[in-house]
Write a protein that binds this DNA or RNA. Structure first.
Length: 460
RNA sequence: GGGCCGCUAGCUCAACUGGCAGAGCAACUGACUCUUAAUCAGUAGGUUCGGGGUUCAAGUCCCUGGCGGCUCACCA
């Protein structure tokens, strides 16, 4: 169907009449306009719609009567010759029709289409038939991930697959889903991140690895969160987080250029320009977007008590025992996150929020870490990897203590990961990119459900 | 989990202040040899999300449950 539409739509009526092009195609009946012994129909195949002209005196009485029994939604095969109608529409003049499959249930209405979001998500197949723009989003999604792979492979990256079921759910702070292996009689967790396995591969000498696959987090659902979501993670030895900012900028602009043919896009009513990426530290970002007077100084932001006062001032709730790093994180989210519309790398997060990241030499309160924001969404998270096994062990122990205090999302100790680090991991930088959110921005979709074919819903 | 909003025919939507549950498309029957939201004539189609209550009378009001949307919280 696509080839047919592309090849013949430029041809004029005279050319078609002269060439007498015979074609054979198939698709779903979308509309029927009967006129006695003549019927016009539209069929949809491979996302393309083409008109078919059926005449009893051409296909024969038996075939025509059979055709008249068909319903909208049925799948038919068509053989015929291309021509243009009085209104110049490219049309197949049918020689013969084959009935291929029946639609027992009626399709959504042709004019208004399908708009009930619940049916759209629960019966995505109907959504894909009725709404061509939805089909386009998922075609685009596939092209984007394909271009990401092409880009990383051009940089000598190796695509790998690491366990989705893990005895310890590490690599992120999140609640995992739990399952159970009967034969081994042991609990397993669906992974919340592939990070610790990918870094084991760096130890093993694969200097550039990436994985695009699902992560699972047992947390709330929202327009930006689905319990299973797709993450790109990549690790590059002999590099630091600043190198990854450069790489990320190059990757996204290359991919978007190839997929969209330009670097301007619209998301949630805002124009976004992917030709330049800003870079600010967390502290600079808070100061930059501080509303009203009394912009806090860098010193203010580095003292727990003053950050507590600032949070009260802007009306953010927090727990009494929260540390400086957590409080600063809250302040950043409240003050800055919504304003980060244009692509912005925000770097130097508190080290205690980043138990797997290397501290900054100049200021150990901060980690060599950045997040990328586009359209107000957190798209990526990256850092220079902590490769000192002794410090990593200490940081895990702090996490274990936090867990003992009731923090369900704190990391668990991973002895084998520490052992791997003891064999020596080169200085490495790693990054995770939320693919669903990236697709949201690149397709102008305001809900993550619009870019996931079968988003999670309660059973109906 | 909290707040607000929604759920009526297969689909898209009506139904005033509580007063016979309706239209278009889809389906079915018939007419029609260049239509394209084809047209014309006719037919059929309902647990008004479920359960309970108030009332002479409930799609409409009250209670309760389900599902969904938005939002806040949680959450990298």
């Amino acid at each position: 169907m696509r080839e047919l539409a592309q090849r013949f739509s430029p041809k004029s009526r005279e050319q078609l009449d002269k060439e007498q092009v015979s074609v054979q195609t198939a698709g779903r009946l979308l509309t029927l306009r009967g006129h006695g012994k003549v019927t016009f129909a539209d069929i949809l195949g491979a996302g393309e719609r083409i008109q078919v002209y059926v005449r009893q005196d051409r296909v024969g009485e038996e075939n025509y009567q059979l055709f008249r029994l068909l319903d909208i939604g049925d799948i038919v095969g068509v053989r015929g010759v291309l021509f243009r109608t009085k209104t110049d529409e490219l049309t197949i003049f049918a020689d013969h029709l084959d009935f291929l499959a029946k639609a027992l249930l009626p399709l959504p209405e042709k004019w208004h289409g399908l708009s009930d979001v619940e049916i759209r998500y629960r019966q995505r197949y109907l959504d894909l038939i009725a709404n061509p723009s939805v089909r386009e989003i998922f075609i685009r999604r596939s092209r984007i991930t394909s271009e990401i792979r092409r880009f990383l492979e051009s940089k000598d990256y190796l695509e790998v697959e690491t366990p989705m079921m893990q005895p310890i759910a590490g690599g992120a702070t999140a609640r995992p889903f739990q399952t159970f292996h009967e034969a081994l009689n042991m609990p397993l967790f669906l992974r919340i991140a592939p990070e610790l396995y990918l870094k084991r591969l760096i130890v093993g000498g694969f200097d550039r690895v990436y994985e695009i696959n699902r992560n699972f987090r047992n947390e709330g659902i929202s327009t930006q969160h689905n319990p299973e979501f797709t993450m790109l993670e990549f690790y590059q030895a002999y590099s630091n987080y600043k190198d990854l900012m450069d790489l990320t900028e190059e990757m996204l602009s290359t991919v978007v250029q190839r997929v969209s043919g330009g670097l301007e896009l619209e998301f949630d009513g805002k124009q976004i320009d992917l030709s330049k990426f800003a870079r600010y530290s967390v502290l600079e970002t808070i100061r930059e977007f501080w509303k009203g007077d009394g912009v806090p100084s860098t010193e203010d932001l580095c003292e727990r008590e003053r950050v507590r006062l600032l949070l009260q001032k802007v009306g953010v709730e927090f727990k009494q025992d929260e540390s400086w790093g957590k409080l600063l994180g809250r302040l950043f989210e409240r003050v800055a996150e919504d304003h980060l519309i244009q692509p912005t790398f925000v770097y130097d997060f508190p080290a205690e929020l980043s138990p797997l990241a290397k501290r900054k030499d100049e200021d150990p309160r901060f980690a060599e870490r950045f997040e990328l924001f586009i359209g107000g969404l957190e798209i990526a998270n990256a850092y220079s990897e902590l490769n000192d096994p002794e410090e990593q062990e200490k940081r895990f122990e702090e996490q274990v203590q936090a867990r003992a205090r009731g923090d369900q999302e704190a990391h668990a100790m991973d002895e084998d990961y520490i052992r791997a680090l003891r064999y020596g991991m080169p200085p490495t930088a790693g990054e995770g990119v939320g693919i669903d959110r990236l697709i949201m921005v690149l397709t102008g979709s305001c809900s993550i459900r619009e870019v996931i074919l079968f988003p999670h819903l309660r059973p109906d």
